[in-house]
């Protein structure tokens, strides 16, 4: 699914998959920090965003 999203033009760092056990709190924090850093570096997402209909 990640590969197909990337083929369609979603940036590689935009989508992440992880497997974290409920006992792995430190891994959870680490992964979340890593992901937020990567996504912040990319900036706001412009793709696959549906614009609200313009109402006059």
């Amino acid at each position: 699914m990640k590969n197909l999203l990337e083929l369609m033009g979603i940036e590689a760092d935009r989508i992440h998959f992880s497997w974290i056990s409920s006992a792995e709190s430190t891994k959870f924090v680490k992964v979340v920090n890593e992901i937020t850093a990567k996504v912040k570096a990319l900036g706001p997402n412009q793709r696959f965003v549906k614009q609200a209909a313009k109402v006059a």
């Binding site: 369609m8 033009g9 979603i10 590689a12």
Partner: peptide
């Protein structure tokens, strides 16, 4: 043909589709 798309940048791929 798929390989040709994979070789594009993310921006180009988004535009292509």
């Amino acid at each position: 043909d798929v390989a040709a798309i994979e070789a594009m940048s993310a921006e180009e791929r988004w535009k292509f589709f």
